[in-house]
Computed example of a mutant assay.
Amino acid sequence: MKRSLRHRCETRLRQLALPDVVTSMVDVVDHVERLRERPVRLRPLSLPPGGPTGAWVATSVLDYVFYERDTSPRHQAQIIAHELGHMTSGHHSSPAAVLAPLLLAPGAATVMLAREAYATDEEREAEQMADLLVAYVEASMERAPALSALEAALKRDSRRL
């Protein structure tokens, strides 16, 4: 029996072993860089209306995540998380070549995925991963002040011993 998309993505999220406290999507990007052992560069762009709002471009040595500059920080985090969802799901193809001339010299990219529609299984999977990643970051940010206070208290108590 096939596992549900959400279950597969929840399993993948656990396998990422994100730190307990992440304060932004940049922390998640840093973690994915370490896991993939290659740099991920975030690049804001003003993309044309009606087109993709984000893209993942993998070169032979690093990954670029392009995201819409002219949108809310929450939407930017969702776009970045979506592209990370593609990376962490092992996706490798997309009909995104139309965006390549806007971003890089032709032929420079080995993998390019552009976030535009959710008609394919890969896009639905990447968006489910994005939802889970953003929720993880938001929940972590809510826990962070409480954890910081607890850590500070434990450090104070350990100095008394």
Rank of each mutant, 00 (worst) to 15 (best):
Val29Gly: 06
Arg143Leu: 13
Met112Cys: 11
Ala144Asn: 04
Met141Ala: 15
Met129Gly: 06
Val111Gln: 11
Ala152Trp: 07
Leu133Glu: 04
Tyr67Gly: 06
Leu161Ser: 14
Asp63Phe: 03
Lys2Leu: 13
Pro101Phe: 03
Gly107Ala: 12
Pro39Leu: 08
Asp63Ile: 01
Asp121Trp: 09
Val21Ile: 15
Arg34Met: 07
Pro95Val: 01
Ile79Trp: 04
Gly90Glu: 09
Ala58Trp: 03
Arg38Ile: 00
Leu47Glu: 06
Arg143Val: 00
Met1Thr: 10
Ala109Ile: 07
Gly85Ile: 01
Glu37Leu: 06
Ala17Phe: 00
Thr88Val: 15
His86Ile: 07
Ser94His: 07
His91Cys: 01
Val40Gly: 03
Arg69Lys: 15
His92Phe: 12
Leu103Thr: 03
Ser89Arg: 05
Trp56Gln: 05
Ala119Val: 09
Val57Arg: 07
Val29Leu: 06
Leu150Thr: 08
Gly54Val: 11
Val29Asn: 05
Arg6Trp: 00
His91Phe: 01
Val111Asn: 07
Gln76Glu: 11
Val57Trp: 00
Val65Leu: 12
Ala126Lys: 02
Ser72Tyr: 02
Glu125His: 09
Glu123Ala: 10
Lys155Trp: 01
Pro39Thr: 11
Val137Gln: 10
Gly107Arg: 05
Ile80Asp: 09
Ser93Asn: 02
Leu16Arg: 08
Gly54Lys: 10
Leu133Trp: 01
Thr110Arg: 15
Arg124Lys: 12
Leu35Ala: 13
Tyr118Cys: 01
Ala149Cys: 05
Pro95Asp: 13
Leu18Tyr: 15
His75Glu: 10
Gln76Tyr: 05
Ser148Gly: 06
Pro44Asp: 07
Ser158Pro: 01
Glu142Ser: 14
Asp30Leu: 10
Asp70Ser: 15
Glu10Asp: 11
Ser72Arg: 12
Leu5Thr: 02
Asp121Phe: 09
Thr71Tyr: 07
Ala146Ile: 13
Gln15Leu: 10
Leu84His: 12
Leu161Asp: 08
Pro52Ser: 14
